[in-house]
Amino acid sequence: MTQPQSAPPSASPSPSHEPAAGPARRWPMVLGGLVVAGFIVTVLAIIFVPRRDVSTDDAYVEAHNAVIAPRISGQITDVEVDDNQFVKQGQVLATVDDRDYRTALDDALATLARDQAEVVDASATVDRQPSLISEQAAQVQALQARTAFSSADAKRYAHLASTGAGTAQARQLAETRWKQDAADLAGARSALAAAQHQMDILKAKHQASIEAVSADQARVAQARLNLSYTQILAPVDGMVGARSVQVGNYVSPGTTLMAVVPMQKLYIEANYREVELKHVRPGQKVSIHLDAYNVDLNGVVDSVPPASGAAFAPIAPENATGNFTKIVQRLPVKILVDADQPLANLLRVGFSVETTIHTDFADVVGAQRNSAAAVKLGHE
C-alpha cells in the first residue's frame, strides 16, 4: 500500500522577497539619467568653459617654394638633378645652350675695344688742338706786322706819287700788297677763331666717346650676365620637386622647370576658428601631432594673419546680397617647428597635422585695451 504523496510546496514568492524587487528595477533608469546629465554637462562645459589649450585638425605643412625658371631663352643641354634630390644653394640644376651668348659677349667686347681706341684718338686730338691754336695765333701776329708795314709803305708811295717823286705804278703795287696783307690777316684771324671753337667740338666728341665706352661696358656686363644665366642655379638649400624639364626642351624666360623646397624652413599653417583666437599670441608653445607617422613635435606660434582665408579667395564672398547665414571664419595661424628635432626631418609639404596651442589664457584683449599701439600679433 503506497503512501499518499504530500502536496507540492507553493511556487508563489515569499512575502519577505517583495520589497527588494522595486530598487532592482529603478537602477537602470538612474544610470541612464546620470549618463544624460553627464553628457549635458560635458557639452555645456565645452561650449562655455574657457580652455587653456586650443586645438584643430585643419592644419597642414607648408613651405615657401622656390620656383626655378630661366631668365633667358634657349635649348636645355643638360639637367643635372633628378626628382626628390637634395641640392645645395648655388648648385647647377640645368644648363642652357650658351653658344649664342658667348658670341654676343665677344661682339660686345670687340665694340668696347673699338670705342676705347676712339677715346684715345679723341683725347690725342684734344691735346693737339692748343698747339694748332698757338700756331694760328702766331700767324695772325706775323700778318699783323706785315700788314702794318705794307700799310705804311702804301702811304709813302702815295705821298711820293702825289709830289711827282714816285710813279703811279709803284703806288698801285704798294696799295695792292697792303690790301693783300690785310686780307691774309682777316683770314688768319678767322682761322684762329675756328681753331678756338674747334676745341669745344673736340672736347664734346671726346666726351661722347667716353659715354660710348660706358655704354659698351654696360653691354659687356649684360652679355656676361646673360652668359651666366645659361647655368640655372639652386637659390636655396632644399629638395627638388615638380621637375618638368628635359634635355632638348626649348625654354623661354619664366618657364617653370622645377621647384626647390627648403626642407629646413617648413612651417605649419593651422586654420583656427576666429572664436578660438582670443588668447593666442606669437611665442606661445604648440604641440604638433604628425598624422603620417603618428609622432609628436614641438613648435611655437609665429604670427596671426592679417585676414581670414576668405578675404584672399579669388572669388570673395558677397554677404551684402541675398539671404545671409553667419559662418564662423578661420584664420591660418603660422606655426614654426622647433629646431633640433630629428623627427622634424620627416615633415613634407602638404602633410596633415593636428596642432594644440598652449595659450595659458593670455589676456590679448586686456593688453590691447591698455595700449594705444597695436598689440604684436605678427612681424614688425
Score class of each variant (00 low, 15 high):
Gln5His: 13
Gln5Tyr: 07
Pro9Thr: 15
Ser16Arg: 12
Gly22Leu: 15
Pro28His: 13
Val30Ser: 08
Gly32Pro: 00
Gly32Tyr: 09
Gly32His: 07
Gly32Met: 12
Gly33Met: 13
Ala37Glu: 04
Phe39Gln: 04
Val49Glu: 05
Arg52Ser: 05
Asp57Ser: 14
Glu62Gln: 10
His64Gln: 14
Ala69Gly: 01
Gly74Thr: 07
Gln75Leu: 12
Gln75Trp: 07
Ile76Ser: 06
Asp78Cys: 00
Asp83His: 05
Phe86His: 12
Ala94Tyr: 05
Thr95Trp: 06
Asp98Ile: 06
Ala104Asn: 10
Leu109Asn: 09
Ala113Val: 10
Ala117Lys: 07
Leu132Val: 13
Gln136Met: 10
Val140Pro: 01
Thr147Val: 05
Tyr157Glu: 01
Ala168Tyr: 06
Arg171Val: 07
Leu173Thr: 11
Glu175Gly: 02
Thr176Trp: 10
Ala186Thr: 09
Ala194Thr: 09
Gln198Ser: 14
Gln198Asp: 08
Lys205Gln: 08
His206Gly: 08
Glu211Gln: 06
Val213Asn: 05
Arg219His: 11
Gln231Trp: 03
Ile232Thr: 03
Ile232His: 11
Val236Cys: 11
Asp237Pro: 09
Asp237Leu: 07
Asp237Tyr: 12
Arg243Gln: 15
Gly248Cys: 13
Leu257Lys: 15
Met258Val: 11
Val261Trp: 08
Pro262Glu: 07
Met263Asp: 12
Gln264Ser: 14
Asn271Thr: 04
Arg273Ser: 02
Leu277Lys: 07
Val286Phe: 00
Ser287Trp: 00
Leu290His: 10
Ala292Tyr: 08
Leu297Cys: 07
Gly299Ser: 08
Val301Trp: 00
Ser303Met: 13
Ser308Trp: 08
Asn323Leu: 00
Thr325Phe: 01
Val328Arg: 09
Val337Arg: 10
Leu347Gln: 08
Arg348Ala: 09
Val349Phe: 00
Ser352His: 06
His358Pro: 01
Arg369Thr: 04
Ser371Val: 03
Val375Thr: 03
